[in-house]
């Protein structure tokens, strides 16, 4: 799993690629927490290069969404979600908790 952070005027984009499972999810959680600690609560998670995500990754996304939405200070949105990951998110009832965008540019434009 690789994580890259890019700052935009109105939000930050966190690009996560590779595979997120119980071994790697803590790193994703840390990256999301670090953004929050830096006062960033408007986050785009770019999943374009994501190959795999288990429920351990979903857990990290849920924690971040809770923290970001607190006091209406922001939100986590998802961009370029690969089909199989979208299927699993849907099965878990997660698609209702996150706005999703077909590409990173429209996701950034949401903020």
């Amino acid at each position: 799993m690789e994580i890259a952070v890019q700052e935009f005027k109105h939000c930050d984009m966190i690009t996560v690629s590779g595979r997120v499972d119980s071994a790697t999810a803590p790193k994703l959680a840390q990256a999301l927490e670090a953004a929050n600690e830096g006062g960033k609560y408007k986050l785009v998670i770019n999943m374009e290069g994501l190959e795999y995500m288990s429920s351990a990754g979903f857990r990290a996304l849920l924690a971040a969404q809770r923290n970001c939405k607190k006091y209406n200070r922001g939100e986590v949105v998802l961009a370029s979600v690969p089909d199989r990951i979208r299927d699993a998110l849907e099965l878990a009832g997660f698609t209702e908790l996150f706005k999703t965008f077909d590409d990173p540019i429209s996701a950034v434009g949401h903020f």
């Binding site: 288990s54 429920s55 351990a56 857990r59 878990a92």
Partner: peptide, 8 residues
């Protein structure tokens, strides 16, 4: 989030 893995 607990039980989500088993649910899947």
């Amino acid at each position: 989030i607990g039980g989500l893995g088993i649910f899947l």
